[in-house]
């Protein structure tokens, strides 16, 4: 029972006009070594806040208010920035949703890839440059030597995301956090990037935390999945179990709206209604306003995460009784 990453009771708030308001609340999950964990949910449900909390890269108006983040048994919450910097880019690497803007426009590709090696491994300019070329080859970029000498604006979105992956892989991280790595790319490129991540994971025994709004991607890539809604985990379990027996009405809604391959670009939208904003969180179940099964109890009391089976939980009163008919 020593997971690579163990998040418990994580609550992260942002300073707003009405004081600190939680964007995610009491989030619990773990990632085992070599495992790919999917985190899914609609826009604004707190996926990025969760990953930035782990990296301790929240914007200055955000802070972790409660909870613990254990990485290899080490507490990251409250860790000094100097110690956290030794972990970032080294043990935990991250890639982002926006490949077009995530690379520094005024530095050459090779320099940007080699940077974490200079920071963490003390390599000099030539060594890190050479290693950068190797990494470009690793992520399948043709003419790696030439590309290392290019500036980012000469590359397409898909190429840039490969470069981001090369940056992330530089120090052989134990955990790769990928925040919607393919959302901004077109479908064929999406598939290539996912293939690349799968290949790298297999070669390097790394764990992946894959954030997506696309359950189709989860089915292809992940071992387990955490479904988030309005800042809370509403269901989690093995991918197989969740696809076979989705329990939370929100998960059921997501599953019935998996876009087909051709229009995976589109955000999930088939569940009517909107995610409540952090300023106006309802007292009871946060999904009640959109839930076809909502009762008075749902509006009054918030359910906790209830066990469906040993490794499968859902935050819904229906679990108590009989499970939901799909």
């Amino acid at each position: 029972m020593s997971a690579l990453l163990e998040v418990s009771g994580l609550t992260t708030s942002f300073l707003t006009a009405s004081g600190y308001l939680p964007a995610i609340e009491d989030v619990n999950f773990a990632i085992e070594k070599g495992e790919t964990l999917g985190i899914v949910g609609e826009s604004g449900c707190g996926k990025s806040v969760t990953s930035l909390s782990i990296m301790q890269l929240l914007s200055s108006n955000g802070k972790i208010q409660k909870g613990s983040i254990l990485f290899e048994g080490k507490q990251l919450v409250g860790l000094k920035d100097t110690s956290m910097r030794k972990i970032r880019g080294n043990d935990i690497a991250m890639i982002f949703q926006e490949p077009m803007t995530s690379l520094n426009p005024v530095h050459k590709i090779g320099k940007q890839i080699g940077e974490s090696l200079r920071i963490h491994r003390g390599l000099n300019k030539e060594q890190s440059k050479q290693k950068a070329v190797d990494l470009l080859k690793l992520v399948g970029i043709p003419r790696a030597e030439d590309i290392a000498d290019e500036y980012p604006h000469r590359l397409s979105g898909g190429m840039r995301q490969r470069v981001m992956i090369a940056i992330a892989m530089a120090c052989d991280p134990k955990l790769l956090i990928a925040d919607e790595p393919t959302t901004a790319l077109d479908v064929t490129i999406q598939a290539q990037i996912l293939d690349l991540m799968r290949k790298l994971k297999a070669e390097r025994e790394m764990s992946i935390m894959l954030i997506t709004h696309d359950l189709g991607v989860v089915a292809e890539m992940c071992d387990r999945v955490v479904v988030m809604y309005a800042g809370k985990v509403v269901e989690q379990g093995a991918v197989r179990d969740i696809f076979r027996k989705p329990t939370h009405p929100y998960t059921i809604g997501l599953l019935s709206s998996i876009p087909r391959l051709e229009d995976r670009q589109q955000r999930l939208s088939s569940i009517p209604g909107n995610v409540p904003s952090i300023e106006v969180m309802p007292a009871g179940c946060r999904f009640a306003s959109r839930c076809p099964h909502a009762t008075q109890r749902c509006a009054d009391d918030e359910p906790s995460l209830l066990s469906v089976t040993d490794n499968h939980q859902a935050r819904c009163w229906l679990v108590d009784e009989k499970g939901v008919a799909v």
Binding site: M55, L57, R85, K86, I87, R88, G89, N90, A93, M94, F96, S102, L103, N104, E115, S116, I119, H120, M164, I167
Partner: peptide, 9 residues
């Protein structure tokens, strides 16, 4: 953010 994620000071 990318630079910070690399562990840059």
């Amino acid at each position: 953010r990318t630079a910070k994620a690399k562990g840059a000071s």
